[in-house]
């Protein structure tokens, strides 16, 4: 997995690429925590290029959301059908705000 972080209109865009599983999910968690700890609390996690996410990945994004809610938010954009399926299975589609495009997710703040 690769992670790119960019700032766009005061929103921090975190783009993950590849497979997120128990081997590397902590890297995503650490990247999100680093942004939150740096005061970047308007976050978008773009999942367009993530073709696989196990429960280890879900655990990290839930942990990050718990940390940031109250002062900001972590919103998701462009989950693939496979990733959306696991989000729905865990009931996270009602907890995260999910957007069909990066532009909409960034613009939602």
């Amino acid at each position: 997995m690769n992670i790119n972080v960019t700032e766009r209109d005061r929103v921090t865009l975190v783009e993950a690429h590849g497979r997120i599983d128990s081997m590397n999910a902590h890297e995503l968690g650490e990247a999100l925590m680093h942004e939150i700890d740096s005061g970047h609390v308007h976050l978008v996690l773009d999942l367009a290029n993530v073709d696989y996410m196990s429960s280890a990945g879900l655990r990290e994004i839930v942990f990050a959301l718990k940390k940031v809610r109250g002062s900001g938010d972590l919103r998701l954009s462009q989950p693939s059908p496979r990733v959306l399926e696991v989000l729905e299975m865990a009931g996270l589609d009602t907890i995260f705000q999910i957007f069909p495009s990066q532009v909409e997710a960034v613009g939602s703040y």
């Binding site: 839930v62 959301l65 299975m89 009931g91 907890i95």
Partner: peptide, 24 residues
């Protein structure tokens, strides 16, 4: 099984792996 309808503040850190095995 963990509860998929639980609100954020009542969510623990685990249990979803077995849930996925059952469901998939």
């Amino acid at each position: 099984d963990p509860d998929p309808t639980a609100p954020l503040d009542r969510r623990g850190s685990g249990g979803w792996g077995i849930h996925f095995i059952r469901k998939f």
